[in-house]
Computed example of a mutant assay.
Amino acid sequence: MYMGHYAIALGARRWLRPLPMAWLLFASIEPDLHDVLGSMIPGLGIGPDTHTLPGACVAAIAIAVITALVFHRAGLALGAGLLVLSHIAADYLTSRLPLWRHGPMVGLHLYATPWADFLLEAGTIAIGLTMYASSPDLRRPVRGGVAVIAVVMLTLQAIWNFGLGGG
């Protein structure tokens, strides 16, 4: 659900404007990045816990603390931590993941039904980009580019869900 995670980060920008967009995007996919880095450099990994509730809570707290130290604002730190947690919430819709290590598997597993997953992602993209476009500090030309961003995101999501062969 990368496009959905990115859409959530874009939407969150409305309230977290002082944070750089890259910071918001990073926080929204931190569990996946932690997974990748952990497989490349085992010392950085937390094993199978990156997509569990305890693992996500640890990551959210770490990102919130780092955000507080760098930006000196508790509200921004809370927002960055919530973005990390949003990743897990979204993944429980699209996947089936354990709540904790060796815990029960939960989730709707919409990946198994590509059209359902696409509709969820498209709705998330629409909401996130609408919130992003209504951010009061965006200039008019940037708002015009939101439609282009939407097309790119929906196209990438369609490729993810349906492949290049259309099925």
Results as ranks from 00 to 15, higher is better:
Leu82Asp: 00
Pro48Cys: 05
Ser39Gly: 10
Asp32Lys: 06
Ile61Ala: 15
Leu97Ala: 09
Leu33His: 07
Tyr92Phe: 14
Pro48Lys: 10
Ser95Val: 00
Leu69Cys: 13
Ile88Lys: 02
Leu82Ile: 09
Ile66Phe: 11
Val84Gln: 02
His51Trp: 03
Met40Pro: 00
Trp100Gly: 04
Pro98His: 05
Leu44Val: 08
Ala60Ser: 12
Ala64Arg: 01
Ala90Glu: 09
Val36Glu: 10
Thr50Ala: 14
Ala68His: 14
Val58Asn: 00
Tyr92Asp: 01
Ser95Gly: 05
Ala56Gln: 00
Tyr92His: 13
Leu53Phe: 15
Leu33Pro: 04
Trp100His: 12
Trp100Thr: 09
Gly79Arg: 08
Pro42Asp: 06
Asp35Glu: 13
His51Gly: 05
Ala60Asp: 04
Ala74Thr: 11
Ser39Cys: 02
Ile88Gly: 09
Pro42His: 04
Leu53Glu: 01
Leu53Arg: 02
Leu85Arg: 01
Gly75Val: 02
Ile63Pro: 03
Pro48Trp: 06
Leu76Asn: 04
Val84Asp: 03
Leu53Tyr: 14
Gly79Thr: 06
Ala74Gly: 04
Leu83Lys: 09
Gly47Thr: 12
Val36Tyr: 15
Phe71Gln: 08
Leu83Glu: 07
Ser86Gly: 12
Gly45Pro: 07
Thr94Ala: 15
Cys57His: 00
Leu37Cys: 10
Leu78Val: 14
Ala60Glu: 10
Tyr92Leu: 13
Arg96Gln: 15
Gly38Met: 06
Asp49Leu: 08
Gly79Gln: 05
Phe71Tyr: 15
